[in-house]
Computed example of a mutant assay.
Amino acid sequence: MTTHKNILIGSDTSSSLAAIIKSLQEVNQYSFITATRVSDIVQISKSLQPLLIVLSFRNNQHVINSLQSYFPEFTIPLVCLQKRNEYYNLQVKEQTIAFIYSFEDSVERSNLSNNIKGIIKLLNLTQTQKHQKTTTLAHTSNTNLTRYTLELDQKKQMLHKIKERIKELYSNVDATTKTKLMSIVNTIKMTRNNQKHWDDFKLYFENINPNFLKRLTTQFPCLTAKDLKYCCYLKMNMSNEDIRFILGINQESVRTHKYRLKKKMVLNKEQDLRMYIQSYAS
């Protein structure tokens, strides 16, 4: 739901302004801000970002041009009221939503209040749908990233088991085979310590959480690579067990790491590290 509670009403005649405000008395959950000059319309739009702008100027097109010129990506919905003897087609950019009504039908016949209520309901519905879509997308992306991380770690664990098995066989083979086995072990070590794994993870992670690592390292330059990984996993809302498994540490080490990380980030003892990280750079 939108948090904007202001509706900006602009008109270059005081009688029209008063008539519009009177006709909107039923829309009482919003605050009305009035303006009579185009420059005021632009400045108020900039500072307050109203939910809606209602225009009733003799030249609404001039006001629209000023708004679209000042804001290259102007997206505040417009309600344009035009009197019959001043009616003309309005030109707006593709991203601008504009509702055009007759001043006489809307104000003098008391239809404006219902029109505004309908527009607000439509805007709130659209905002809710966008929020749900964003939330679903973020959840799906984090789920995929978690799966990717766990699968990568499982591959590392499998390579570790293979390396240990090779060590067991080492003493029972001839010199030539020992040389080949050691070559395999060295390859496994290089694979497990490959920086590319972390680089690939960071690329994927930052597509979902842009600027998270950048802001974290800027604010807390003392964080190590392991600290950053831990923060990434907390941001993904991974369980402590999964984090312990991925980092290859025991439960006691998890607690110690958490304590040291909170100390580096200068957090109070009462502050929850997971909640802090999840809300960080959101």
Rank of each mutant, 00 (worst) to 15 (best):
T3I: 06
T3V: 05
I7M: 04
I9V: 12
D12S: 08
T13Q: 08
L17E: 09
S23C: 05
N28F: 03
Y30S: 07
F32C: 07
F32N: 10
T34G: 09
R37W: 01
V38E: 07
I41N: 07
S45F: 06
K46I: 00
Q49C: 04
L52K: 10
L55W: 06
S56D: 13
F57R: 14
F57L: 07
V63E: 01
I64P: 02
N65L: 01
F71V: 00
C80D: 06
L81A: 08
K83T: 11
K83L: 04
L90G: 08
Q91D: 09
Q91M: 06
V92Q: 11
V92W: 06
I97V: 02
I97H: 05
A98Y: 06
F99C: 03
I100N: 12
F103W: 14
E104W: 04
S106W: 03
R109P: 00
L112K: 11
L112N: 09
G118C: 06
T126G: 06
Q127W: 01
Q127T: 09
A138D: 07
H139T: 11
N144Q: 13
Y148W: 14
Q154S: 09
K156E: 06
M158P: 00
M158A: 11
L159A: 13
L159E: 12
K161W: 04
K163E: 08
K163T: 02
Y170D: 02
N172A: 10
K178E: 04
I184D: 03
V185S: 13
N186W: 03
T187E: 14
T187M: 09
T187W: 09
R192E: 14
N194G: 02
N194E: 03
K202R: 14
F205P: 08
N211T: 10
F212Y: 11
L213N: 11
T218W: 07
P221H: 03
L223R: 14
T224H: 13
A225I: 07
K226R: 15
D227H: 11
L228C: 14
K229P: 01
Y230H: 12
C231H: 04
C232V: 03
Y233W: 12
M236I: 01
N237V: 00
M238E: 07
M238L: 09
D242I: 00
L247D: 11
L247K: 15
G248C: 05
N250K: 13
Q251V: 00
Q251F: 00
R255N: 13
K264V: 04
Q271N: 15
Q271E: 15
Y276N: 13
A281H: 10
